[in-house]
Design a protein around this nucleic acid. Structure first.
Lengths: 245, 245
DNA sequence: TCAAAAGTGTTCTGTTTACACCCATGG
DNA sequence: CCATGGGTGTAAACAGAACACTTTTGA
């Protein structure tokens, strides 16, 4: 690697602070895939456009990054503004940048996904009409590259839920083993063996079985469990424990 | 979810194409973590700033997104411009957006990582001085949030190399089992058992053993192998094969 | 009394780990 | 002839998959 003085000058210029002024600026959007789990089905929150163009088409919720906030904050703000929800699990997914992805203007979209316990949150205060929870299996075609985003989010959720206890974000605080299994069956889109699943979960040793039953589904009733986050974190910290379903 | 007419109006405005004009625009940088494997060591390509501010500090290579290209193209262009390399495995990693991450100007950075076979590429034509391959273990502190980027890239490389045949991107076309094992030991930063490793690799059945030996390391010589990409892709396609080390 | 969901263990199979010696060759 | 790295197999432990019956209780 040889020193080349003229290239050196160019490179220096490229890294001078005021050089940035000459560069193109772009709009940065934030789009959110909001997953919810409702008893048996994995759903996503979509809005229906009732104006042109793309009138009648479905879309993810989104907004634009502001100068004084970072992307995580923008994603939280978008979610809060449009649904009233806060304190929700969110994770950055991927950044989409096809030149013509948005016909209106060159827009780059940083995509996030969120996990919500549908039951635990009061959607009376929802800030947006024409928003609906749609079963993932029945999801309509979405505008722009939003379908691609959803596909990637599903893949990420699948992988992540198998190796991290993020699934509990989609469940009520207290849940039955059957609900947990239903959740994983929805996420993975396949049936699991009841006994193997329960044995597996119990072997992880991060749930607390309560002296309380959910009587709403069966006559016998099913014991409720809670996820013991402290215990989980302690195990990770102390023993390098790996959550793995 | 109730219809609320005034909110409806606000939302419509938010989605009108010309509304975008009112939104803040930002600079989008692309930074690249370039991994190379050199016989036994995993390295990254860094440049040393020899001007203020942060003079003498090390940095990733980077550039800015232009209006007429997408991020993948920008990453390829940055790599090509600064190193002369093309046709390199690259993957988008994460987007960094702390408000003050770059003291010069509000800049969002979309981070990519690249995998290079150091030997196979001629670095005489490298377009940048003060660039060096640095062993990962000895890597210096980097500017801005570049250390965080590198940490995330390593984690991604580890995970991905265990479940996808991307490791071969870091090796010459023909390689010995020992080289492959050295590579994985570098990536995972731990020793592996020789027999178990070879048995595992052979059970995957995606390598072709050549009638050719590498005589440069031992007196006996070691057989060379190549990765059979077509066979791998066929197995994935037809049998849902999972590469898993 | 029966329908519907809850709860519970064992066997089998495949995968992962641990482990040690001979081979080929150039110097 | 010996130092150096190359090449090979088996047994034990563990994890994952397959599989069916009994319990509870409200209607």
């Amino acid at each position: 690697m040889k020193v080349s003085d003229n290239l050196e000058v160019a490179k220096n210029a490229n890294l001078q602070l005021n050089y940035y002024q000459k560069e193109d600026q772009v709009l940065l959007a934030v789009d959110c895939i909001i997953f919810g789990f409702d008893k048996k089905d994995l759903k996503i929150l979509l809005i229906k456009r009732n104006f042109e163009p793309e009138k009648g088409k479905w879309s993810l919720i989104g907004g634009f990054l502001k100068k004084n906030e970072n992307l995580d904050q923008a994603a939280v703000r978008v979610l809060k503004t449009l649904t009233g929800l806060s304190d929700i699990y969110m994770e950055q997914l991927y950044t989409y940048s096809k030149v013509d992805r948005d016909p209106g203007q060159r827009t780059i979209s940083v995509c996030y996904y969120a996990l919500i316990d549908v039951d635990a949150h009061n959607f009376d205060g929802i800030q947006i009409d024409s928003a609906s929870w749609i079963e993932l299996k029945n999801a309509p075609e979405l505008i722009f590259d939003h379908d691609e985003m959803v596909q990637k989010a599903i893949a990420r959720l699948r992988r992540k839920a198998m190796t991290n206890p993020i699934g509990f974000e989609l469940l009520p605080e207290k849940f039955t083993m059957r609900q947990l299994q239903n959740l994983y069956e929805s996420i993975l889109d396949k049936k699991l063996d009841k006994r193997n699943f329960i044995n597996k979960i119990n072997s992880l040793d991060v749930l607390v079985k309560l002296d309380e039953k959910d009587m709403t589904v069966s006559r016998k009733g099913a014991y409720l469990y809670i996820f013991d986050k402290e215990k989980y974190e302690k195990k990770v910290e102390e023993d390098g424990f790996n959550f793995k379903i």
